[in-house]
Nucleic acid binder design. Structure first.
Lengths: 273, 273
DNA sequence: TTAAATAATTGATAAATGTCAATTCTATAC
DNA sequence: GTATAGAATTGACATTTATCAATTATTTAA
């Protein structure tokens, strides 16, 4: 639960440069302030003593290894989580004993918002690679939001964003062809990397083809074929998990979305602690 | 904006009995208290003076006629809305000039939560029949939530429920066959009617086959064929918009969901005012 | 009431995607 | 390093669903 010595920014993806910043025991108290994801998440207006208050309710957990669970289905809800480094997938069991992937979570993104209503996690969260998260006890966060209007506002905004994002995905899953789904998926990942300061045209996917297929409601084989086709058509370069976006415009056309407007700062805020 | 004389519970669906309760000008101040949807939405702990406070920020709008818009895409976000009677659909424009239906909203359900993040409505809302809604100015609601911890909690719960529900739908759209989608859709409508005190085995659909198809990501023809097949198989009786569920268990099996757990009271809360 | 427009259904066919099976590639354990 | 298990790819084929076209039913407007 402590292990402050281990708290560092990790090399999330092989081949991508990223500063390793060791957060030692003494600086834990100001971890939020120092976090490289700071500007992604906190309202500008939270500073000084308020930031310290927020900081004080955060718990840092030891990093998860690949395939370790952050929480299980049905587990009681106590906290929301923010990804610091690495990535996770969330998934639900289906009647026939399969699993259905419901989302992927990159640094700066939240997990657990869907559990507030019932007090239980409707899905499980599993690390796709070595991953560290911040834990925000929900009762404390609620209490603090009561004191800090901007924090309440930010929390509501973030939940709203989650609803908005889910609806975007619904659009995708509901209507589109296999190539549109995969294209939109890749563009979505690309955009999220960009918002975190990474390259939007070159990145590593931490999830398997199987997870992608499951998430997009397609067969693995179809996803594989689409990767091949995209490569043949010069849209991307895909070598296993290493992806290069070569013709973004065409991909947007295939995805049927015009992503030009989604770079607005208003879209970037993530809760991070 | 006023028109208090018009505020009455309407006969939403032909053939379904429902008390007509005229809310006259004098009782507008205690409309929340008197509303038949009260127990669906408000935390039990909000009573007395607090309830009056909440009540005082609500605006009642004149009823919408069929096909009238509650809000348009891109319209600035000021309020969230609660359906009092009737129903609406929300939809987004797609690149190719089509529309994509993103949801249906029955009495006691909320609209507008997806707009908080950006301050603009990402979708439009159009009445499917004569419909009346309560308007809750968001700034006031936020302010009041600051004073009333239970209200803040309820608001967060409802937003969480929205996220949860969207993810359920994603599961549906992502993975299932046409018959599973339609079956799950009908069961979902059935459950929502039940939660509002109506029959869960017999109801009227206010939306067209086209809207259903669009929402489920299918062609109209496919939806039509599925209705026919379900009827042939004795699962339902469908006469235009009038639906009777005849074999719920089998439908649940087809939908691939076991809905047995979804009747819990914890699932029923809706924000209503 | 009748006419016109819209919505829903049905059939025939084409296209997309899933399934099954085999093979190649990659990562992991020994 | 080699063996083994898992992941990804590819091909052949079956199934599902979309598309196109025609018909019928229903609602709306004159």
């Amino acid at each position: 639960m402590i292990g402050a010595g281990e708290l560092m920014q990790q090399k999330t993806q092989p081949g991508r440069l990223r500063q390793k910043k060791v957060v030692d025991f003494h600086s834990v108290k100001v971890a939020c302030r120092e976090c490289s994801l700071h500007q992604l998440c906190l309202p500008r207006s939270i500073t000084g003593a308020d930031l310290d208050k927020l900081d004080s309710i955060i718990e840092r957990k030891r990093p998860l290894k690949r395939n370790e669970h952050l929480f299980q289905v049905g587990g009681s809800f106590n906290s929301i989580y923010v990804v610091r480094s690495g990535s996770l997938k969330t998934y639900s069991p289906t009647v026939d004993g399969q699993e259905q992937v419901t989302g992927f979570h990159l640094p700066g993104e939240l997990l657990g918002l869907d559990a507030i209503g019932k007090g239980k996690h409707p899905c499980a969260a599993k690390a796709l690679e070595t991953t560290s998260v911040c834990e925000v006890p929900f009762e404390h966060l609620e209490g603090l939001s009561q004191e800090l209007p901007t924090l309440q506002h930010q929390l509501l905004r973030l939940m709203s964003k989650e609803i908005f994002d889910d609806q975007e995905l619904m659009l995708l899953l509901g209507k589109k062809t296999a190539e549109a789904r995969l294209s939109a998926f890749l563009l979505s990942i690309s955009l999220r990397f960009k918002q975190r300061g990474f390259s939007s045209s070159e990145f590593y996917l931490s999830m398997s083809r199987n997870d992608i297929a499951n998430y997009l409601g397609l067969a693995v084989e179809t996803v594989s074929r689409m990767f091949t086709r995209f490569q043949e058509d010069g849209l991307i370069k895909a070598e296993r998990k290493h992806i290069v976006i070569k013709d973004r415009e065409m991909m947007q056309q295939i995805a049927g979305t015009n992503e030009c407007c989604d770079d607005s700062p208003g879209n970037q805020s993530q809760f991070q602690v």
